[in-house]
Nucleic acid binder design. Structure first.
Lengths: 315, 315
DNA sequence: TTGAAAGCGCTAACAG
DNA sequence: CTGTTAGCGCTTTCAA
């Protein structure tokens, strides 16, 4: 970060540098911010700090922010937060030069308001409300789910495939469910509503759901969970009922978080480039702040099938 | 965040609030910061964004920051960062009202410099250099390790107990090793230097180390890893050599991160209150910023033995 | 090319 | 108790 407005005598530069070192000087961000109307900080708004998903995402964001010379201000609006003092306003407009909004970290109305004010913003793992042209980065969720369910059907001949959905209204989960449905339809397998239930992107919730299925004797060939965490829950419920994986019931997930490969029966899943998504989001935001315009509105990052043992393959 | 310098007519308040809503006004942090010389932001400096340890820690820090009305600026100095442009200066003095320094996120010299400038700072999981009186929060590492090794010896009769140390110079690891040594001495078991090696707080490193031990036929009753991640590595290496846990070799860890209880052989470990430590650090920092003085310099958080199966107990 | 001066938007200290 | 003013530390503009 160099001012370098004009050429200066070398000697002058040296004297100034020496003085800086001696006096232990560093410019005051507030004053600079007031004068330039830029804070050199980007904000990340997230609903909740997750366990396995969050660290790689943050790594990616941090890397791009640092590369761009920006600081990173984090604000989590999660349950248990303080009263409704419009908390995100603090991290919004006048505190940062732009915002990364993770999934449902911000209400639609607030996103719309910020966009109307032309405030730089990139959405991560969600699309803009009202089809506004706000840059966003998302996974190829539908394609990934489609590949997975195709595999379950074609390679293993499973017919009764259950789907453990994510939280209500979650977009990632919605697309994954659509891929699941399309795969079944493409193979002329009727969709059984009883085979679709809530997994909540959460191990405990998924475990409870699958536990109920088992209790009422539901027959399933395979369970496709909307994310790896809920796949873990499914596995746990299955094991508690003495079912073997994949011999009795196959299981597949989505995300490929780190623990997945280390399960006693390694999890077949769809790999999502979590860190890359964070990196691209922050990179896009930095460009947006600098040039006031984004190269592209939607960044759709590819997903990849990761075949391990839990689906019935030996690999 | 209310100005409330003086009582005002209710009607006036309402009109102002209405105007704020309509004009979509929010105060500009930079100007306020310049005038008040406070940023209402605290900084977290961390060397690397870890996988299982980081999220709970951040949750705790965020909670306390929000409670105190502070924003949170995160800066990770990790490998792969940009050139040495004294990067932390940016997150330091003039950008934040105070800093939480996680382990080795900042060089000693920089900590000393900041402390000389009377800059509010709390150290997390390290003690101050030169015994400066900088508030810090740490785990009861030595006590926890001592309890664990005592258990290994007294409950199971293990004699040849190996220790997988953390990274060079890491304080947590140092204390844990001391607890290990004291437990052996207390039971008159000679310390064998060959039984102490690097685990690096890292699964891969630990796996390699234990792999070498096994390759050269070293005999061990139990392995006490300085953290759970390295315990996982030990387990992996043991399994690859066909050793059973705990029948052939017992394993114990430290931290009790989430995956530990879910291993096929659940891990016996020492529980460290990770989130609580983050919370207390941020809380202390907020108090320090507000009152310019801390209630206490050292916050030593208790650790607790968590007995599961990997040590040889049935629990 | 360099130096002086104005002003960013807010708060604090003041006078009315 | 209310309204006015000076000034926080930088950048930018303009004059010398």
């Amino acid at each position: 970060v160099d001012n370098a407005t004009a050429p200066v005598a070398v000697e002058t530069v040296e004297r100034v540098q020496a003085a800086i070192g001696e006096l232990n000087f560093s410019p005051q961000a507030a004053a600079r911010g007031l004068a330039t109307r830029r804070t050199n900080t980007i904000g990340l708004i997230i609903d909740e700090i997750g366990r396995d998903f969050f660290p790689p995402m943050l790594r990616g964001i941090e890397a791009a922010a640092q590369e761009g010379g920006f600081g990173l201000l984090i604000h989590s609006t999660g349950v248990g937060s303080r009263p409704p003092t419009t908390p995100y306003r603090a991290v919004g407009e006048h505190n940062t030069d732009g915002l990364i909004v993770f999934t449902d970290g911000l209400p639609d109305a607030e996103i719309i308001r910020l966009h109307k004010n032309r405030f730089p913003m990139v959405l991560l793992h969600r699309t803009p409300p009202n089809s506004l042209s706000i840059p966003h980065v998302v996974f190829a969720n539908k394609a990934g789910a489609r590949m997975m369910v195709d595999h379950l059907i074609e390679a293993h001949g499973y017919k009764r495939i259950a789907f453990l959905a994510g939280p209500q209204g979650n977009e990632d989960s919605g697309w994954r469910e659509l891929g699941y449905r399309e795969a079944l339809e493409a193979h002329r397998i009727p969709i059984d509503a009883a085979l679709i239930a809530a997994g909540g992107f959460d191990e405990k919730i998924a475990q409870a759901t699958v536990g109920e299925w088992l209790a009422k004797g539901m027959e399933v060939d395979a369970i496709f969970a909307a994310d790896d965490d809920s796949a873990f829950g499914a596995i746990r419920a299955l094991q508690q009922s003495g079912k073997r994986i994949p011999e009795d019931v196959a299981v597949a997930g989505f995300d490929d978080i780190l623990p997945s490969r280390y399960l006693s029966t390694p999890l077949t899943t769809v790999r999502a480039p979590i860190e890359e998504a964070g990196y691209q989001a922050a990179r896009t935001l930095v460009q947006l702040i600098r040039s006031r315009r984004a190269k592209s509105i939607e960044l759709l990052l590819p997903t990849e099938l990761v075949i391990r043992r839990s689906c019935g393959c030996n690999a």
